[in-house]
Amino acid sequence: MTGALGNMDDLYEAIILDHYRSPRNTAPVEEADVDFEVNNPFCGDEFHIQLKVENDAVAKVGITGRGCAISQASASLLAELVEGKSSDEVHAAVSSIRRLLKGEEITDEEADVLGDIEALAGVRKFPVRIKCALLSWVGLDDALKAHQTG
């Protein structure tokens, strides 16, 4: 897109808008093992994230809530990624995401794991929006750690 809003294309890549409009895994999870809420009151983002964990792998994930396009798409991308992953793998992915958004290098292997999620990297040009992109990831990381330590 050109015009005054052309610069926003880095932020709102097609894949981001797609996840924003049709977020994945929005069905609540019954008898969830990990169940938590994250919110960023300053922008008005709120998500309820639930996981079913079997043999230390995420068997099922459900994310409901509301937020801006970035936080919503990011949560949806997270839901897609974590299914089937062990908590160590999730932890590693969260670490790659954090570095990606900070503008640090990530390895090709990490990029492979992230797949579509790399589209979030455009947020780097809009530093105030980095929080939106990280919201659900940071929450998930903390919640999984808490679950592991019981």
Binding site: L11, Y12, G44, R66, G67, C68, A69, I70, R129
Partner: peptide, 9 residues
């Protein structure tokens, strides 16, 4: 449109 996206735009 969420207020935050509107604000950025």
């Amino acid at each position: 449109i969420h207020p935050h996206d509107l604000g950025t735009a």
